[in-house]
């Protein structure tokens, strides 16, 4: 099982690759935002993978003096806020996409570029 000790990081890299491909290659703007959220998920996974301590538990004390082995709380705090900020920025992106659809009648980027070039 030794070779699986870095598996989380490999999954992070593969998810990042998939998200990056979706963001760059897809012309549909909604699909791009979905790709961006996969990309975000990959980064979240990287941070949370780093917080694990072998034999530790979630950083919530069971006794008053805080004895025991706990995982690292710091990456958890960073990602907890990042998830909520992520959904807020995704919502902003979707709002822009909806406005584009109302003005151009499409959310396909190549069609929009053609329309811009014609006018």
């Amino acid at each position: 099982m030794e070779f699986l000790a870095l598996y989380n990081y490999w999954v992070f890299a593969v998810l990042l690759l998939i998200g990056l491909y979706a963001v760059v290659a897809k012309v549909n703007l909604v699909k791009r935002l979905i790709g961006l959220s996969i990309f975000q998920g990959a980064v979240f996974l990287l941070y949370i993978s780093m917080d694990k301590v072998e034999g530790g538990t979630a950083p919530i004390f069971q006794t008053a003096d805080g004895a025991g082995v706990f995982s690292n709380p710091l990456p958890q705090v960073l990602i907890l806020t990042a998830i909520v900020v992520g959904i807020a920025t995704t919502a902003l992106g979707l709002a822009v996409v909806v406005r584009i659809r109302e003005e151009y009648g499409t959310v396909e980027e190549d069609v929009i570029e053609d329309m811009d070039a014609d006018s």
């Binding site: 979240f44 917080d51 950083p59 907890l80």
Partner: peptide, 8 residues
């Protein structure tokens, strides 16, 4: 959750 991040 498996990685001990219950809050996240």
């Amino acid at each position: 959750f498996l990685l001990d991040a219950a809050d996240v």
